[in-house]
Design a protein around this nucleic acid. Structure first.
Length: 111
DNA sequence: AGCTTGACGGACT
DNA sequence: TAGTCCGCCAAGC
């Protein structure tokens, strides 16, 4: 039980995996759900490690503005945008349209 | 051992 | 309403 921080990473992966297709969430929402409220950066850092390793659809996670800030980390910037558009979302200028309508809150809908 | 950066978010001006 | 600054936590140098 000395790798507790690793557990935090696994928890992030579990929540992201539960995100339904066509839905997106924010780093802060996941962080708040895990109890790390205020430390949204840690969620982002966890996804960086998650990207090539786990099957976590990190492209469904964006910042609170619905902006694809981490698209650059998918190898090719177009990968994240194209993946979201493939799920029925509309993205213009790297920003998700109707982001709030497609928003998925783990603390409310997942519980 | 200390400083800087970073997939963010909220508060302040 | 928009732009800017500060705070949180861990990894890299």
């Amino acid at each position: 039980m000395k790798d507790k921080k690793t557990n935090f990473f696994q928890d992030v992966y579990a929540v992201v995996k539960l995100i339904p297709e066509g839905r997106v969430t924010s780093y802060g929402a996941i962080a708040a759900y895990l109890g790390a409220k205020g430390s949204a950066r840690m969620v982002g850092w966890a996804l960086i490690a998650a990207h090539p390793l786990t099957d976590v659809p990190a492209y469904r996670v964006v910042n609170r503005n619905g902006l694809l800030t981490g698209k650059q980390h998918f190898g090719d910037p177009n990968t994240m945008q194209h993946a979201l558009e493939n799920e029925g979302l509309t993205i213009i200028n790297d920003q998700i349209q109707d982001f709030q309508k497609h928003f998925w809150d783990p603390g409310k809908e997942l519980i």
